[in-house]
């Protein structure tokens, strides 16, 4: 199960942000996406997750294999931690959520309404959702935001276990997770601005 991308160009709000991007992510490997703010990391991850079509280029191996976690965790504040997790588990056709609760130390919180959790605890709940999807490729956008040192370790462990069983992970992050991960710096792939005479050429 290799996620491979060839000559990908992606757009945000109709404007190209990245172009000519090619890489392959084989099973058992992690890849860290780097680049300055606004370069299009989130757009890249959303395109890979299938939330928007690419402008050009091919993506293969992303059909029903990707578990996406964005900036928002998709948590319902009035449901308990357990109800939130069980919902996502059954959407993905799984039942067992104990492994996910254990991995992020959510056992004690499992009967609390998710709305009463702290930001870091919510993030942990959001990340534990990945474990109930059963999907091989994790595509994560800034997963460690608002996590403390301990929780970052939990996350690194979870990714490590996932890689060990043949999963893969594509992570946009700026902190060092202590993982053996390939680095993908997208800065050189910034899309060139369209030539100016395209803009009002027809009117002149």
């Amino acid at each position: 199960m290799t996620l491979s991308v060839t000559d990908l160009a992606i757009t945000r709000g109709g404007l190209p942000v990245l172009e000519g991007l090619s890489f392959a992510l084989p099973a058992g490997q992690a890849m860290v996406v780097r680049g300055p703010n606004g370069i299009g990391k989130t757009t890249l991850l959303r395109t890979l997750a299938g939330l928007q079509p690419p402008l050009r280029g091919q993506i293969s191996g992303n059909e029903d294999t990707i578990a996406y976690a964005g900036h928002a965790d998709g948590i319902k504040p009035t449901l308990t931690v357990r109800e939130n997790l069980s919902f996502w588990a059954s959407v993905f056709g799984l039942k067992d959520i104990t492994r996910a609760l254990l991995a992020y130390d959510l056992g004690e919180l499992s009967e609390r309404a998710a709305g009463t959790l702290s930001a870091g605890q919510k993030r942990r709940l959001g990340l534990s959702r990945l474990l109930v999807t059963g999907r091989p490729i994790w595509v994560l956008d800034e997963p460690t935001v608002s996590l403390d040192k301990n929780a970052v370790e939990m996350f690194a462990n979870a990714v490590h276990t996932h890689l060990a069983v043949g999963g893969a992970a594509l992570i946009a992050t700026h902190i060092d997770l202590g993982l053996e991960a390939e680095l993908l710096d997208v800065t050189p792939f910034r899309a060139k601005p369209a030539p100016l005479d395209d803009f009002d050429g027809v009117f002149l």
Binding site: G50, L51, I66, Y68, G70, H71, A72, G74, V91, G93
Partner: peptide, 14 residues
């Protein structure tokens, strides 16, 4: 949409 569930639902098998 606000809490991101819609994005996650769109990437789910449903």
């Amino acid at each position: 949409w606000e809490d991101g569930s819609l994005d996650l639902l769109a990437t789910a098998p449903l």
